[in-house]
Design a protein around this nucleic acid. Structure first.
Lengths: 152, 152
DNA sequence: CGATTATTGATGCAGTTGCATCTATGTAGA
DNA sequence: TCTACATAGATGCAACTGCATCAATAATCG
């Protein structure tokens, strides 16, 4: 019956911190990548998924499931990655509509160089700021905000 | 001497959770606003700052300090807000370069209607998921990731 | 089979962002 | 004062995003 019109001050504060911090971290990292003449974070996300998938590659719709990119976004991002020679698009034997995306050697190399910067950013901006226990606490609590919630 | 090449698994996980959760929350909220025929979150941020500033208004550069928007972003956002009649641009007496931005009545009304949706989003996505203690823990830990760090 | 519906991925268009630069005004220093 | 430099804000252009829709293939069902 009672509609909660406004969240608690604690919820608002947590939300505000989350928004501000995540934007700052992204911005810092994007700056660092740019300074290193490297592609934006979005490219890393895709290259990372593809590197984990190995030689079998992934279908674009699988990338959509694994990342938070919209379909049109993946479509165009893959076009750019292909234009840069970082991925290959292969036809799929049993589905004429689809394609399999496989990371190339150059793609792995780019990913490696991005990680040198990205990883440093994570270490400096997060790893160095909180203890292991605190990091685990953050992960656990944020995991409950995820959809679907993660328990680990 | 020793360069830390890669952050700890705990730091990586916390980072990943932070990135994913913040994107999901933003996306959910933007969807809710759109569904209500309301402007995007960025407008809320600015309207909120201007509403808090009261009749005196704020200079654009003060908005840049308070939010995380780039200068050109604020410039154009304010142009859109003005075009929609949500803010007024007033000349500044002692600085011919500048202007003061003041929220209009319609701006306050729009902010109010946005908050009805935004606040509900915060409550559902965050407030309802964690206890007050947990929310405070999240805020405190994220505060330490902020730049500059916040202790409260 | 043949028609309908669903899925995969691409794309035209309008709106937004990022970058670099520009104009205008203010400040400081010789 | 006159010149150099700094600050406030706007803007042209290219790239990117979001939306809607499209074409092509696959799956379903009578």
């Amino acid at each position: 019956m009672t509609e909660k019109a406004t969240p608690s001050p604690e919820a608002i504060k947590a939300w505000a911190r989350l928004m501000r911090v995540s934007r700052q971290l992204v911005e810092s990292t994007e700056d660092a990548l740019k300074k290193g003449g490297l592609p934006p974070l979005a490219w890393y996300d895709v290259l990372h998924e593809l590197a984990e998938a190995g030689e079998g590659g992934l279908r674009p719709f699988q990338l959509i499931e694994r990342t938070l990119f919209a379909q049109y976004n993946i479509s165009r991002l893959l076009a750019r990655l292909e234009a840069d020679g970082l991925v290959e698009k292969l036809p799929v034997a049993d589905d004429g509509r689809g394609q399999t995306i496989r990371i190339s050697t150059k793609g792995r190399e780019t990913r490696r160089r991005m990680w040198a910067v990205y990883g440093r950013s994570i270490e400096e901006l997060v790893g160095a700021k909180l203890s292991t226990d605190e990091l685990n606490t953050v992960s656990a609590l944020l995991g409950r905000l995820r959809h679907p919630p993660a328990d680990d």
